[in-house]
């Protein structure tokens, strides 16, 4: 019994992380597991987020590697969505929200005062919880991004972009005959794939997904998950999800957030079979009161 409590106690984690900067930054809030990767696309260091006086994210350090799907899990209000929204500065729209620390996208600090947020969001696209196609035609939904960013010069080029984006989102065959019909007339799963097509039409490097399947039925969910798996070859994907099974299915690495802290991060297999932190363990085995 005593031995057992030693293993999962939060005070003495079994795996001690090796990153020097982490140990310097953290005292009693050590993130368990390896936060860095060998080929990072995004690096977050000491990220804090405040809503007014309330701190929503507390000194989070995390790398997001190239061509990897990283899943962020945790109970409601743990800050995982907030953290995700920091990665393309969607939090800017909230007046009271303040972000400190450093978030690098390919060695460029995205919170740099001089950095323009518009091209950033073209680089780091986002897919939301509720499918939110524009109340326009399917074609216009996908074409909107390339059009406002001036990515194409002619109508025929735009057609090509729209078709390839819809193809990659696995939606082309279903909608090719009704591109002029409203995007909101599609089913929930199709709408969400339309939103993914709309995001990849801009040609982002990173795609953030905020619980993309929470409003979908299992078959639509399976389609989106298959799509995420395929998209991994070209993009870096960070996904927030409430479904642990989903995190286990689609991601290579998993990060567990709890009350604004990044508790544990590691290979998905390891997190789901043998988490090192008591809180992670309790969460994924369903032991939260």
């Amino acid at each position: 019994m005593q031995f057992n409590t030693q293993v999962v106690s939060p005070v003495t984690p079994l795996m001690v992380c090796t990153d020097i900067e982490l140990i310097a930054a953290h005292d009693n809030r050590k993130t368990v597991g390896k936060i860095s990767v060998t080929n990072p696309r995004m690096r977050c260091r000491n990220v804090n987020v405040f809503y007014g006086d309330k701190q929503a994210i507390n000194r989070v350090n995390l790398d997001i590697g190239r061509h990897e799907v990283i899943a962020m899990i945790g109970p409601s209000g743990c800050g995982k969505s907030t953290f995700l929204r920091c990665l393309n500065r969607m939090n800017d729209t909230i007046d009271s929200c303040r972000v400190t620390g450093e978030i690098l996208l390919d060695d460029q600090d995205i919170y740099d005062k001089k950095l323009d947020v518009v091209p950033l969001r073209a680089q780091v696209g986002m897919v939301f919880q509720k499918p939110n196609p524009f109340p326009k035609s399917i074609y216009e939904n996908v074409a909107y991004g390339p059009r406002i960013h001036g990515l194409v010069s002619s109508k025929s080029d735009l057609d090509v972009v729209v078709e390839s984006s819809l193809c990659r989102a696995g939606l082309w065959d279903e909608v090719k005959d009704r591109l002029d019909q409203p995007g909101t007339g599609l089913s929930g799963g199709q709408q969400q794939r339309l939103c993914i097509a709309r995001t990849i039409a801009v040609g982002p490097e990173v795609i953030l997904m905020d619980e993309p399947c929470s409003a979908l039925d299992p078959i639509a969910t399976a389609k989106i998950e298959g799509l995420i798996d395929e998209l991994r070859e070209e993009y870096t994907i960070a996904i927030v999800t409430h479904s642990m099974q989903q995190a286990a299915r689609v991601s290579q690495r998993t990060a567990y957030f709890h009350l604004g802290d990044l508790i544990e991060v590691g290979e998905t297999n390891q997190i789901f079979t043998n988490p090192q932190h008591k809180l992670t363990e309790d969460y994924i085995t369903g032991r939260f009161g």
Partner: peptide, 11 residues
């Protein structure tokens, strides 16, 4: 959600 969608692709 409409605003988020537009902002999210860089409008």
């Amino acid at each position: 959600s409409i605003r988020e969608a537009a902002l999210g692709i860089g409008a």
